[in-house]
């Protein structure tokens, strides 16, 4: 097994083909995420962004290609072991356990290993990051507002003490002021040392905080570059920024 040295990327996706049944959705997809980077995946609806994240977290299996995380080939790792290895996925549409309390949702984010041992401590930290959740800790997660639910989803992910955190459209459906708050939180998470893979539709704000980004179209990487370069790219401007 390769050594987890700082030189190797945190995540290396290499030539994966992914299918739903007989329908191929990802085609020879490759990209990398370096340590402590924010890397963004952007692209139109149906481009395959969520499919990519689901494949990394083992809900789907690639038919070809390989994924290496922190020096480990993920094909050999059972999906439920990934959180323990620090690979955390905050899924599209939040996927909270709506009938359980906010606190129970958070606890489920820290079921194993180091995260389980430090659960109480981490809970205090996420409560100070999202004070609103402390007030609502006993409330059923499904009764929270959309913004609060997104905070729970992020907080639940943080409970796992992630090394790599993948967000699937965390700002979807939120009011502009909350969108900005979510982006600030993502940036802050990276600044505290966690690597971030961010899937987003708010392309302008995403490119503004991303170190690098990949543009996906119909299951392939069409373009890549630094956030700043892509913000200035005429094709990106026309297709994603409405300019």
């Amino acid at each position: 097994m390769a050594d987890a040295t700082p030189g190797t990327p945190m995540l290396d996706v290499s030539g994966i083909d992914v299918f739903y049944g007989d329908v191929q959705v990802l085609w020879d997809l490759s990209f990398t995420v370096g340590r402590a980077e924010i890397v963004a995946l952007i692209g139109a609806n149906g481009a395959g962004k969520s499919t990519t994240l689901k494949t990394i977290s083992g809900i789907l299996r690639p038919r070809r290609g390989r994924i290496t995380y922190d020096g480990r080939a993920l094909g050999d790792v059972e999906p439920h072991r990934l959180v323990e290895l620090g690979l955390v996925h905050v899924p599209e549409a939040r996927r909270l356990f709506v009938e359980m309390s906010v606190e129970e949702n958070l606890e489920l984010g820290a079921l194993r290993g180091e995260a389980r041992r430090r659960r109480a401590e981490t809970k205090e930290q996420v409560f100070s990051l999202f004070p609103r959740l402390r007030e609502r800790r006993r409330q059923a997660a499904g009764t929270l507002s959309g913004g609060e639910q997104q905070m729970v989803a992020i907080a639940r992910g943080l409970m796992g003490l992630p090394k790599l955190m993948m967000f699937d459209e965390p700002s979807l459906g939120l009011a502009p002021i909350l969108v900005q708050e979510i982006f600030n939180v993502v940036k802050r998470i990276r600044d505290e040392g966690t690597t971030v893979l961010l899937v987003e539709q708010n392309v302008r704000q995403t490119l503004a905080i991303a170190d690098r980004a990949y543009v996906m179209e119909t299951g392939r990487v069409e373009m890549q570059g630094s956030g700043r370069d892509l913000l200035g790219d005429p094709h990106v401007k026309a297709a994603y920024l409405g300019l």
Binding site: S57, E84, L108, L111, R156, G160
Partner: peptide
């Protein structure tokens, strides 16, 4: 409630 989300929490 949601088996895929449970899997993402590390539930076997």
């Amino acid at each position: 409630q949601d088996k895929d989300a449970a899997l993402l929490m590390g539930v076997n």
